[in-house]
Design a protein around this nucleic acid. Sequence first.
DNA 1: CAGCAGGAGGTGA
DNA 2: TCACCTCCTGCTG
Length: 368
Amino acid sequence: MGSPAHDLPTGTLHLPYDFTVLGSSPMDSWTSMEDTKPPRGLPSMTERGLPERGLPERGLPERGLPERGLPERGLPGVYLSCLDMLLSEDAAWLLKRTEVTNPLVAYVRDHDYSHDHHPDADRKPPHCKEPDQCPVIDSQGLGVLSPQLEGQVEERCLEQVHCLVVGEVLKDIEMACKLLNITPDPMDWSSGNVQKWLLWTEHLYRLPQVGKAFQELAGKDLCLMSEEDFKQRSPQCGDVLHAHLDIWKSAAWMKERSPGDNLIGTEELCSEADSCCSGQPIHLWQFLRELLLKPNTYSRCIRWLNKEKGIFKIEDSSHVAKLWGIRKNRPAMNYDKLSRSIRQYYKKGIIKKPDVSQRLVYQFVHPV
DNA sequence: CAGCAGGAGGTGA
DNA sequence: TCACCTCCTGCTG
C-alpha cells in the first residue's frame, strides 16, 4: 500500500511479541486470567520498528486495571501457539543464542519476564553444558561441524524459528479475517470492520468494551492514531489495542512486501469445505470448525473431545455464541439461538448429538 | 436453572 | 429458496 502505516523498516521482524509465553500455552494464560494479575501495557511498535518504550518493568506498580484483563503474559502470546511445545528452558536458551543476530530477540531478552513464571528460565537446558556450546543438530550426518559451518547451521535454525513464528502470526490473523469477514490490512477497514475487530479483540482477550470510543473511525484513521490517541479514547486498554493493531499492521506490511513468500499454510486454512475462501457467507458449522482448528486460541470456549469422530464440546457457550454474534453482526446472539441453529443441522445430517448424549457436546456427522 | 428438542414465523441474501 | 434468527413451549437433569 505504501501508506505511512506500512513504512516499516526492512531486515528485521518487528512484532511486539512477548516471548516469555514460550513455555506456556496461551490458553493457560487465558485460564489464569481470572485469578492472576491483570495485563500490563504492551510495547508500542513504532515506525522505526522496535518499541518506543519497553514492556513495563517487573515490580512496577500496577496501573488502573480493567475488570476483565488480558492474559497475564500479554496478548501477543496468543500468536505463539506454534512454540508452545518448546520448553521454557529451551526458549530461554534460544533467546540467549539468538540475541546476537536478531535485534528483536535482543529486545525480547531485555524485556524478558520469564522469571515471573519460570524461575529457572535462565538455567541452561539439561542437555546443554553451556549455552554457548549447545550442540548444533547435524542434520546432514556430517559429524562434528566446523565453527563456521556450525554458525551457518545455527543461523538457518534461527531463521526457521523466525519463519515459524511469523507464519503462525499471519495464519492467526488470516483466520481472524475469515471469521470476521474482514481484510487483513487495517488500512482497508470500514468503520464497521473496525467495530468488528474491536469487538472480537475485546472478547478474545476479555477487554472492557470500548467500541463506542472508536465509533465512526475507519481503519485508515485507526492506523494513523498514536498510542496516546488510543489511550485518550480508551484509558483502560487503549495501549493494548494499539499494540494489537500494530501486529496486524506489520503482518499486512510483511505480506505486502513479500507476497510470494509462502509463510502462510493456506492449504490448511482453505480446505475444500471452506466456502469463506470463495467469498460465500460462512456457515455456523464452518465457523465452529474454524474455532476447533485453532485450539491454542479457542480451546477455552470450544474443543475436540474426539477429533477423529468429530465430537466436540462447547466449553463456554455464551462466549462461542458471542463470537458467532460478532461474526454475523447479531449482537443479541446467545447460546439458546446458536444451539437452535445447531439443531437445524440434525435434519441436514451435518451435526448430530453423539451416541452418548452429553450437555454441550455435539458431533460432526462427517468428521474432518 | 441451563441445556435440549423442535415447532413456527420472520428476515435477508 | 436457503440458512439462519427469534421466540416459544415443554422436558430433563
